[in-house]
Nucleic acid binder design. Structure first.
Lengths: 356, 356
DNA sequence: GTTTAGCACTCAAAACTTTGGAGTGCTAAT
DNA sequence: ATTAGCACTCCAAAGTTTTGAGTGCTAAAC
């Protein structure tokens, strides 16, 4: 455990550096920390902190900058979370004002809100739930050989895809398909739809298999699409301008342009439930992020589907301000989505009885 | 009309400058243009071209750079379109390989393809058609008071929106709605759906109006959403790195982040049909684009819906190479989409007879 | 033992200077 | 109309100087 004064000094260095972006010298600390020691004493402490790897000098005659471990120590032990003002809350709420409860729209809005109030890049994923099931599948003819197939899940995710048929569409085909949906798909967990299931199903159709095959393949694709959360990243261009990125912007932007590493980034957290996770520099496992911090927060709908939102920015970011804000945004998302999607049971049948 | 040699000189300056980005001097031209005059002669011609405002010098002792008018003259009179190699064609085709014919997916892919082969920012709009009509509307309950409403148009655009009900959903409500869709909406041109129509319709429902009102409002919203093309811009971050933007990148990116000016940009072209339009510098009406060129090309599905794709980049771009490529990409888009959506008539009824 | 004043030292950044060369415009000759 | 020749301009790159913030160390003070 660090002596108190050294903790104060480290905290002051981190906060000052976050604010100004300039290396912090002993004199500057003196005025910031009204503490009754001389600059020489502070220099001694700074030398000790440097030896411990918590701060470093960019060159011999410069002030100190926090190292990655320095930030980590600060976040873990020294940081005081900044309380949210009422106006902050209201601004965050306004940013995700999406009354309809469409999860995709809401998450997009949340991402935009993060981009706006953090000035970093923001990522968001739609909810995914291994227990999600198919609520409905519709097939609508669009032209003689093309039908639009639409799948809706219990978590409110809607995916659609055109299906190009091998044969001309007939009402017969549509009826067969609708029946199949009714008997085989509605209520089925997404996880249960796989190529094996689709193939055995096709086999059982006998003569009708031919006309159904491309439709079934489309259903399978849609189930696949709906079960994996999609991830989006916004505000990449916010990252320009941060001088810590001036060297390696191209490689960072390229990295962020790919979906795959991003979703690894999101999913690689502790598999545990909700919570906020701060990864500093190389704690993100990707070399492209070695001078970035990610703050990723998980939301949960009722006690079912989960997803994440978060930001990516330079390690020099205002942790004590951002963390509570992201936390609050996450809480709102959980709340709004839970209101709409909490009850897992389809109401179709229930209301049937009620009204009769 | 410019004398032939001056034309040659202007063309050579434009081409050389496009290639290297450096001001072009008289000696450099001498070797590029094997022409039997001395550098002094060329200098005289260059002085004349400068006087006419077609080229300029960044400073007294530098070579020449094309002005906006210089580029314009080049594009209008001097440029030789570069023929497409077979491999180019194939690469472009591969870039938009989207067999399904979903217009939104296809246009997104086309935008990505443009981003990749031009290294600029690319914009694309989904098709919009004032004669488009409603193909189908589905309403699927999601929770006791929320239904997902999905609208599909004759042009293959699918829009969905959750609708939060004032009352609990019942099968009765669903039946009423489905009947309404059948009788009032299916086949109706999108342009005919407006708040007046919705209100008169609601009035005619009598007692049922209350339970229908939010659903009808949602339908109205969806029709609105479906009738206006959405526009997307990709590859903004490609614009980093061009030194012509090093000053005013932030304002440019901010401008490109807004949808509204972008759609004005796309729609402000001559209202005429298909065709490719090159706007250089201030020919784009926005001050933020004063050192950018936009190349915007319109595609058309059959003889109905139209949309646009295009690029935004610095005025220093390879016009003779890009224009034919964008043209070719446009042709492909038109062709692929026409194949699927050309026939405007719903086939539901036709096939009914065929199979009976 | 911890703290402090004082001083020599270091080094990056900014300001300034030097140099080289590409390119021009002009003039007088062809 | 074209050209050779020359004086001139001015940027860019490289080199130089100046400045000042900040350090580490030492020896004295608490």
């Amino acid at each position: 455990m660090l002596p108190t004064r050294r903790q104060q000094i480290l905290a002051a260095i981190v906060e000052q550096y976050i604010e100004t972006g300039e290396p912090v010298g002993s004199k500057a600390l003196l005025s910031k920390l009204d503490i009754n020691v001389s600059s020489a004493t502070i220099r001694n402490d700074m030398a000790a902190l440097t030896a411990q790897g918590l701060i470093y000098q960019p060159h011999t005659s410069a002030g100190r900058i926090p190292t990655q471990s320095g930030y980590r120590y600060y976040v873990d032990h020294l940081m005081k979370m900044e309380e949210l003002e009422e106006t902050d809350r209201r601004r965050i709420e306004a940013g995700v004002d999406e009354r309809s409860g469409d999860p995709e729209a809401l998450l997009t809005k949340a991402g935009e809100a993060l981009v706006n109030f953090t000035n970093f890049a923001a990522l968001s994923t739609t909810p995914s739930d291994e227990h999600a099931f198919i609520k409905n599948i519709e097939m609508v003819p669009v032209s003689p050989k093309v039908a639009m197939v639409v799948l809706l899940t219990s978590t409110g995710i809607l995916k659609s895809k055109p299906c190009r048929m091998d044969v001309t569409l007939t009402t017969d085909i549509k009826q067969t398909f609708d029946q199949l949906v009714e008997e085989q798909f509605r209520g089925t967990p997404l996880a249960d739809i796989n190529t094996v299931k689709i193939q055995t199903l096709a086999a059982s159709l006998g003569a009708k298999a031919l006309s159904m095959s491309s439709l079934l393949a489309t259903v399978s694709d849609l189930a696949e699409m709906a079960s994996q959360a999609d991830i989006r990243l916004e505000g990449k261009s916010n990252l320009l301008g941060y001088k810590e990125y001036s060297d390696n912007l191209p490689s960072l932007l390229k990295f962020l342009g790919d979906e795959e590493p991003l979703s690894m980034l999101v999913s690689s957290g502790e598999a545990s439930g909700p919570g906020i996770e701060v990864r500093i520099g190389s704690e993100n496992r990707f070399s492209e992020l070695s001078n970035s911090t990610t703050i990723i927060s998980r939301y949960q709908i009722g006690d079912g589907a989960t997803g994440a939102i978060g930001i990516i920015g330079p390690t020099r970011m205002n942790y004590s301000k951002l963390i509570p804000r992201i936390q609050y945004l996450t809480d709102i998302i959980s709340k709004v989505l839970s209101e709409v999607y909490e009850e897992d049971t389809p109401i179709h049948e229930q209301t049937d009885e009620e009204t009769s």
